[in-house]
Amino acid sequence: MNLKVAMTRSSSPANGLLFALTSAGLYGFNIVYARIASFTGASGSAIVVYRVLLMLVLVGLVAAILRSSLAMEREERGKLLLVGVSSALQGIGYLSSVAFIPVTVAAVVFYTYPIIIVLVSPFVEKTPLTQALVAIVAVATLGVCLVVGPAFSDLDWRGLALAFGASIATAVQFFAAARCTRTGVVAKVFWIQLIILPTAILVSLATGQLAPPSILALAPFAVTMTIAGYVGGFVLQFLALGRISAVAAGILYCAEPVVAAVSSALILNETLAPLQIAGGALVLAAIVANVLLEQRRRLKDAALVPIAD
């Protein structure tokens, strides 16, 4: 291995951390505008359907312009199918849970997926479960709980089950996506969205919310920001998961509810309580600790790889 190749590989995880953190920020920002769109009657399920259709069109155009292949690597077809199904289940479970429990409670239950990823990683990725990693994920989870500030009262078990199911689906998505490193990002996004589309249409039909495209004109700016945030976050998520482990990415995505809370305060004039600010600080501290831990692990791994002339 020459020095140039070694440098390229060592910088890739750093890019992955940046991609994941930016993706989490876009997802958190996207939620606020989705809420604004809902005020005008543009339902979430309808936005999801047209968002997926738009992504398929955009991916097709990008593939044509870049002359990029949409073919899947044969050995990764099963993994991509798993990513698509888990992505669909994630969205359905999380969005459906808020029909039975408050959004804040659903968020706390949903964001248990970093804990699931860390606890399962020794069995899936064969990585050691260190005390430092457990401490980081515990701090991040506590911070998320403080940020969303749930009121655990009169909870419906159906909502809890749906939110926790979405959390498990997200953990599966992260592990499966981290193993799809040979298929190009354009092809990944195309096939995953193609798997999500029929599921989103079925849910919209079942709930009676499959409205015509004209419904998007009710809040054009909010809908545009919602779709743009999702598209950017989704693409960056899969760029990140091709470069870093599911564990490292999972902790970084704890930034999403923090960004959502801050964006809500700035855009919707919602008030942040002192405990929420403290929770955001804990999440940021956990993210910084995770980045430092990942960097130390990366340097240790690089030191073990001999560099030939």
Rank of each mutant, 00 (worst) to 15 (best):
S214D: 15
A308V: 13
A222Y: 11
G229S: 11
R67P: 00
E76C: 01
K188H: 05
K188C: 08
Q237H: 10
I251E: 02
S68K: 13
G143L: 04
F123N: 02
L56I: 07
V172T: 12
D301S: 03
S204G: 13
T130M: 04
V147R: 06
A246F: 11
K300Y: 09
M7C: 08
A107N: 08
A248C: 02
I117D: 10
A308K: 09
M225K: 07
P198Y: 14
V147W: 07
L160T: 03
M225R: 02
V258D: 00
V305S: 09
G149C: 04
S214N: 12
A37M: 13
A222I: 09
V139S: 01
E270P: 00
D156G: 01
V85L: 14
V103W: 05
V223M: 00
P114N: 06
A289E: 07
A303R: 06
A261W: 04
I201D: 02
A289V: 04
D156R: 01
A169L: 07
V137T: 15
L299P: 00
R297A: 15
L218R: 14
V148G: 02
L54Y: 04
M55L: 14
V185I: 12
A249P: 01
L95Q: 11
L61N: 05
I227C: 02
I31T: 12
A169D: 05
R158L: 12
A285N: 03
Y27G: 00
T181M: 00
F175S: 08
I168K: 01
P306C: 07
N290G: 05
L216G: 10
A6I: 03
D154W: 04
A273W: 07
A285P: 05
A166D: 02
P114E: 13
N30P: 00
S167V: 10
A106W: 14
V62R: 09
Q295Y: 15
L218D: 05
N15Q: 12
E256M: 04
S11I: 15
G25H: 10
F175T: 01
M55E: 08
S10P: 01
L155G: 01
S153V: 14
M7T: 05
L133V: 12
L18S: 02
V235C: 04
T271Y: 07
G28L: 03
L299F: 06
A34M: 15
A176R: 03
G229Y: 02
G84L: 11
G41L: 12
T181V: 10
S264Y: 12
V83A: 00
A106G: 10
V108Q: 14
M72L: 14
A240T: 07
V120Q: 05
S96W: 13
L292N: 11
L268H: 10
Q295S: 15
Y230L: 14
C145H: 05
L142E: 00
S45V: 10
I244H: 01
L236M: 12
K300D: 13
I277H: 03
L160A: 02
L252T: 11
V203Q: 15
W157D: 00
A151I: 07
R9C: 04
S204F: 03
G279V: 03
R182V: 09
P257E: 08
A265W: 11
F29L: 09
V283W: 12
F174T: 06
G28Q: 07
C180S: 07
A211Y: 12
L162M: 06
T141S: 14
A176S: 02
K79H: 09
